[in-house]
């Protein structure tokens, strides 16, 4: 077991200790910067509502990740299938990617009447780009010798896609999915912030805004901490998913030599 593994945890605990002692020593008012103890107390005082909000936000992020994965995969397939489709789709995907979702969200919320769906659309716009660009890169990176081999054996376009291009793009797709997972969470929270001003307040962004209005700063920090932990958990879970799948299909390293 490598001892470095514990370094981030030890460093975190050390930071929390400094933070708590500084807040006490300097008598910082709780409405400016609460110490970790106050934040934990705020969480336990209101854990039910905070966790319910977390679940609401996670539901949006999960639905968006699923949508982003499917949308990104389908667009990448279309782009790999035809040069025309590639030329048509690529610039618009970039336009969607560079337009801040905060600016798009109010429009989407007006257009899509169902709140949950509107938020999912916003978060999907943020999340689908890494899936699209990674999968497209993976589909384009099929070894030319294998393509030759498939052609020599009279493979159809369908067989080339399903038996060669898609499986070779799998590691790229999974790496894109891992990035998309955390982006979907970010997108969900941003969209919630916009939607909160219109009265929708079931997610964690709603809790943060609400706590801000009431100057319940420890509760705000508690919600923030939950979000950060959720982001780390999503990233780690998708990373584990990626490793498991790649290990199962044996594509981890083709350069490993047996004795």
């Amino acid at each position: 077991m490598k001892t470095e593994r514990w370094a981030p945890i030890l460093f975190g605990i050390f930071g929390l200790l400094i933070w708590q002692s500084a807040v006490i020593a300097l008598r910082v008012p709780v409405y400016v910067l609460p110490g970790p103890v106050a934040i934990i107390q705020a969480f336990f005082a209101d854990w039910r509502s905070l966790l319910l909000s977390l679940v609401a936000t996670l539901a949006i992020a999960a639905a968006s990740l699923l949508a982003a994965a499917m949308l990104g995969m389908m667009l990448a397939l279309a782009m790999a299938a035809s040069r025309w489709a590639r030329a048509a789709i690529q610039p618009w995907a970039v336009v969607l990617q560079v337009t801040p979702v905060v600016a798009l969200a109010p429009l989407i919320i007006i257009w899509v009447h169902q709140q949950f769906l509107a938020l999912v659309v916003c978060a999907t716009i943020v999340g689908f780009f890494p899936v699209l660009s990674n999968t497209a890169a993976g589909l384009a990176a099929t070894p030319p010798a294998l393509l030759d081999l498939f052609r020599l054996n009279g493979a159809s376009r369908r067989q080339i896609v399903f038996l060669l291009r898609l499986p070779s793009a799998l590691p790229y797709f999974l790496a894109g999915l891992r990035i998309a997972g955390t982006l979907a969470l970010v997108g969900a929270v941003v969209a919630e912030f916009v939607a909160s001003s219109g009265g929708f307040a079931s997610g964690l962004a709603g809790r943060i805004l609400e706590a801000g209005y009431r100057l319940e700063i420890p509760r705000m920090f508690a919600a923030l901490t939950l979000l950060a932990l959720a982001g780390i958990a999503i990233y780690a879970a998708l990373g584990a998913f990626e490793r498991t799948i790649l290990k199962r299909v044996g594509a981890v390293s083709s350069h490993h030599h047996a004795p």
Binding site: P143, A145, L146, D148, L149, F150, L152, N153, G154, A155, Q159, L163, L164, P167, L170, V249, G250, A251, S254
Partner: peptide, 27 residues
């Protein structure tokens, strides 16, 4: 026509049997 490249160019996700089966599968 069978073709053997300088690299083995096997499908990394498929075992030896499935790799050898490929031309027949395509047929």
């Amino acid at each position: 026509i069978g073709f053997v490249f300088q690299d083995a160019t096997l499908l990394p996700w498929a075992d030896a049997t499935d790799n050898v089966f490929l031309p027949l599968r395509l047929a």
